[in-house]
Amino acid sequence: MNTNEYIASGVLELYALGTLSSEEMKEVEANLLLYPELQEELDQILLGLEAFATAHAKEPSPALKDKIFSKLSFDENIQKQDALEIEAPIPAPEVKIIPLQPNYLAAVRWLAAACIALLFTSGFLLFQNSNYKSTINDLASQLETKDKEYADLKVKLTSSEYLLAEVQKPETHKILLNSKSGKVDELAVIFMNVKTEDVMVYTNQLASLPANEQYQLWAMVDGKPMDMGVFDANDSLQSAKKFPELMQAQAFAITVEQKGGSASPTMDKMVVFGAI
């Protein structure tokens, strides 16, 4: 797909304005997942629309706030909980009251024992409270990590679902690119839709590269290597560049090149290769 033409058509603007049919919206959403440059463009469009809304800002009457807030209920415990965390709740231990007797010594002993008991109990409760506090902090940070993991998984799932739908089409051909050095787990997969002539490459089984290097995909057309774009190792699914002779390609190869790619492939740095 030519993303520049797609952007210029104005369809992303209509998507942002919410004026597309649900069918058209799904199409745009699938394209947004496939082409990051479309998502970047959409983000800018949304900022533009936010500016448009801000330009029309107008204050409602001051009395409205109280009216609205009187209709909402809030978690009043949030502030109390904070207070509890700061001041340890120390219940007073039971102290036995001894009536004052001629035997003062016995009374003093009892008092001393009670004081020591009180001291230990307070110390223990303080210690326990700080344990609880750190447990709460741990749980909160765990929850945050899980939230992030969940969001990442959601994105991955959507892209996997799209991939699954794509590869099930009879017009999508699958080409395996195998390791040149014979490593079993080093491989890349190409999905070529012969109808739309879109090519997607799946590179997440390739080893990570230093920051100054990238993988570059090449199509071999009549023995001539044609550039199909650069990829990073951890990208799950990427769209490759298109050109008219692409459907005549006899083979595909991936080489390691300087970041941004080279004009022609460095043949001794070829990692995977696959013929059609």
Partner: peptide
Amino acid sequence: KDKAAFEYLYDNYKAALFG
């Protein structure tokens, strides 16, 4: 459902939304 957060939200966005 923290009240302070909703007050912040209201104070900062009321004019934009009302506009």
